[in-house]
Write a protein that binds this DNA or RNA. Structure first.
Lengths: 331, 331
DNA sequence: GTGAAAGCGCTAACAT
DNA sequence: ATGTTAGCGCTTTCAC
């Protein structure tokens, strides 16, 4: 409580206690290759370090080596669901396997530009949703950030860093069509910040319809509110739509609520399919059919991409089979 | 693309371009108090910095000053919901207002102890759910971490850092009792990792019942699965339970699914109340009544607590009215 | 009003 | 097989 912050334990302290030089301490504790240290010395050093509770200074190490092993993940400023938590966990584990540490910065609307972040952290790489401006990239580089990757889709940018959003929409449509539907609807989210994801997903649905010479899906914005969703449901019914692809599970849940509110039932009157497979999906009435992404393989892939890029090697390609339809009652 | 990583821009570069010394650059860019620099010099320095795209080295600054302005938030290794995202966003904004930067580390099951983290980051403070061992705290302190706060409840630990979990349970029970129920059930989560939260919430429900001389709530574990939840519902009905408090909204949604599956309806046959107010709550059948926490005031409070503790001042008390019941159809 | 210089704790060439 | 040494980029007395 009233403890006056203890003096920091440095490698010099360890060296003194072990009766060696600081260099030796560094060699031992870092397992520096092509350094031959006698087993006895190693033990003495390690023991001294343990006894003193020595923990190397991150700042000093980063300053000296010029590279940190932190990967910074910038969250978007729109609400995130449980699936993001899973994805981060997977990414974190995968990066850890490569000696990298993941830290996440919550996006917040009001914050000044994230310039403050490079001042506080000096990440080896930055992963973000949005595309960065050239000026931002320049600023990061000069701040020592080696690599910047954006998760958003980029026109023919080569390697995929995340699941192509189009694919999600396409899978939804394919499932619905295979079930016999031909006139589809698309339930658009009410949050404009999320359009970057919604657009390509809708495009995927459109593409799937076009490929089968089916009519263009009729898109409607669906707020997360039963009454508003009921309106949308009525409109779809009036247009002859028999099945809808929702932007994500929450929107799909809203559509389902709308269906119940107008006294209809899914999937008979209107089939519904979501994206994400959040836990509430299987608890809905009826249980929600949805397109799920395997976050752990995705996380591993992203990690591999970052690591490859950092070491100048060529990035791996996205494994197939990361997304699959979870068939339940609603479609 | 083939760009050979640009040389880092240092304060020396800025000094050279501005025709001043590095010390002056530092004074200007940091607005160092009680330093009198002519307006002309200030402008020259700032312009030079901008032109060069100068960003100070976080590592060097931290090494020199001995303190970083990063606050590290360690996520637990259990699945987190959307409410955590909101809380983090609020906390991040609040900390930013105090010049601190929040970074979050996803908890992952398999990771080695988080020792790696102090090596990578040198936070000014660490916020975590679990209680730390003395050894861990010692390690952090010697790594330069000034402050460690745990979110979990501690026997009479004085200041509250988060909403007391008991309060959540108590509010649930009070709402149910006020609605005329006297025999309550408690829907326990199926994930043992979350017991640290579930226990005190249940304790709150118990306390509320005891205070009114009502029978002890009958606790049942409810997996996020309709069939399993239906079993629980049958058991509660057999015991005369007419209303249940669920650990959180997801569990509540499961109970609701169980109620429908056995052909009953809420709230008439069994009233249900959750915790969190996740988006799917209002989309459920029936719409879920739940206890919501105001994450933005909570975030601001946590930030204030951290800041106060770091500067040795006394921590503020938790404002009242952070939690409220959102009454919908299910209870 | 501005500059020179001394480190913060660490690693990696270079000595021995 | 281990020690010496020179910085990494920054802040901060202390001189001028």
């Amino acid at each position: 409580m009233t403890e006056p912050a203890t003096k920091r334990v440095t490698s010099a302290d360890v060296a003194r206690l072990a009766g060696v030089s600081r260099a030796t301490v560094s060699y031992v504790l870092n397992d520096t290759p092509r350094q031959t240290i006698s087993a006895g010395t190693r033990d003495r050093v390690r023991e001294a370090a343990a006894q003193l509770g020595y923990a190397p200074s991150a700042a000093a190490r980063t300053l000296r080596t010029g590279r940190s092993d932190v990967v910074l993940y910038l969250l978007p400023d729109w609400p995130i669901g449980p699936e993001v938590g899973l994805a981060l966990e997977a990414l974190s584990s995968a990066l850890a396997r490569h000696g990298l540490t993941l830290v996440v910065h919550p996006g917040n609307r009001e914050d000044r530009p994230m310039t403050e972040l490079w001042k506080a952290i000096t990440p080896a790489a930055v992963i973000a949703y949005a595309e960065f401006s050239d000026a931002e990239i320049a600023a990061m580089r000069s701040a020592g950030v080696a690599l910047v990757v954006a998760l958003s889709r980029k026109r023919g940018h080569g390697r995929e860093l995340a699941v192509p959003q189009e694919l999600l929409g396409r899978r939804q449509a394919e499932h619905l069509v295979r079930a016999g539907h031909s006139r589809l609807g698309y339930a658009y989210p009410d949050d404009h910040r999320v359009r970057f994801f919604a657009e390509p997903r809708l495009a995927g649905v459109r593409a799937a319809c076009a490929a089968r010479r089916l009519p263009t899906p009729v898109g409607l914005t669906v707020p997360l509110d039963p009454a508003a969703a009921a309106d949308a449901v009525r409109r779809w019914r009036a247009t002859g739509v028999t099945a809808v692809c929702a932007y994500n599970d929450e929107v799909a849940l809203a559509v389902l609520a709308g269906v119940r509110l107008v006294g209809l039932s899914a999937p008979d009157d209107l089939a519904v399919i979501g994206v994400d497979d959040i836990p509430p999906a299987r608890l809905a009435e009826p249980a929600l059919t949805t397109v799920a992404t395997d976050q752990s393989v995705l996380g591993a892939h992203l990690a591999a991409t970052v690591v490859a890029a950092m070491s100048g090697r060529v990035a791996p390609t996205l494994p197939t089979g990361v997304v699959r339809v979870v068939t339940r009652a609603s479609a």
